[in-house]
Nucleic acid binder design. Structure first.
Lengths: 207, 207
DNA sequence: TGCGCTCATGTTGCATCCACCATAGATGCA
DNA sequence: TGCATCTATGGTGGATGCAACATGAGCGCA
């Protein structure tokens, strides 16, 4: 792995994990020292992250880690809903081959809820949805979706710290989705996907 | 404008205008000399372009300007259709405020078809659609749409060099869209948007 | 005390330098 | 002649140096 990749991973995972919370100013020099590389690869990493909207670069001042505004949050969820609804429709005629993976992620979520590992739970949630989106077989859309989820994590990392009732509700909804995929109709499944995302909007919006 | 931005603009417009056709290898050194800056900002520009999917960086070898594969082309148009259909639906209840801008772009297209400036025609086409997408008031989606169009230009720049019948057909379709927006129904307009993009898929696919 | 100015410090933006690597063409040997 | 190997060249990846700029602390003056 190149030094540039290392810097990128370091900063990005730091942001996504909440170690570098939104609002903090990071500087190339400090990060470079921290990671053990020179400023050049750090600079490249920050540019990439700026392109992704994770940080905002202020000339001669530094990089500000940004959280999505309430407005952007709404927009992200609307975009998610659009893609997930599309993907749900693509699952018909029924794509039974996706079911094992979905079940695996579901089981994982159930386990993680017990142990209370919120960030891993959220990762499993994401993986579940990515299976559905990827089933649409459109890598352009999959990439856009993945990016939306990255952005969303920053919100969630700040908001949802181990909220059992919400996790329970989420788990129930995912179970329902899988159930509908196995034995429901296309329109039922599409609507459930839509409602699932809309529910998440509410969660992110109310706090 | 910073040297980095200058390099970025230079390379990107070069690719979009077809001056740097897909398949060519560019090197940091040569570009740097050409633009009149050092390799550092050029390198940053290439990294940004790689993130956008415009070039592919091969370690120790150089940067390859890539055209979308037929597969990616299909995917781009599918994503476009998804967004445009959504945006079309967002235009109801009727957003009359978008009409003047749409009409202006339409007139521009008519003029440009006469003068035969294909790339400007294509830019006006894009602007027309961006008005509709932007009317959805979702900057996240607008950005994704804009990116899709950037990618699409690379295809078009290689394919559609001044094809009058196609331009005529395109112009007619845009007129129809505007007409439906003014005095059609929501479902008519949405369907027409969908069909318009599907028509474009055919164009890109058949060559 | 309060205001404006200067300067010290921290940070970026960019140029330059060096080491490593990939590759192609030359070279030597069978 | 044909093949393996060696080497010269061109390219990137990364480190470092330097100038320009933003900012805030400290100081002088009214």
């Amino acid at each position: 792995m190149s030094a540039s990749d290392k810097a990128y991973e370091h900063v990005k995972t730091g942001i996504l994990a909440g170690d570098i919370p939104p609002g903090t100013f990071v500087t190339e020099g400090r990060l470079a020292e921290e990671i053990g590389v020179s400023r050049t690869p750090v600079r490249e990493a920050l540019l990439r992250l700026q392109a992704e909207g994770m940080v905002e670069l202020f000339p001669k001042k530094g990089a500000l880690v940004t959280a999505p505004t309430p407005r952007e949050t709404q927009e992200i969820f609307e975009a998610r809903a659009l893609i997930e609804e599309w993907a749900a429709a693509q699952m018909w005629p029924r794509r039974a081959d996706a079911i094992p993976a979905l079940r695996a992620h579901l089981d994982e979520m159930a386990d993680l809820m017990r142990t209370g590992d919120v960030s891993a739970f959220s990762a499993a949630d994401r993986a579940f949805h990515e299976v559905i989106v990827d089933a649409g077989s459109n890598s352009v859309i999959s990439r856009q979706y993945s990016h939306l989820r990255d952005r969303q994590i920053v919100i969630v990392a700040g908001n949802l710290r181990g909220d059992k009732p919400r996790m329970t509700a989420s788990l129930r909804q995912h179970r329902e989705l899988l159930h509908l995929l196995e034995s429901g109709t296309k329109s039922q499944f599409v609507r459930a996907c839509r409602e699932h995302v809309d529910y998440a909007v509410g969660l992110a919006g109310t706090r």
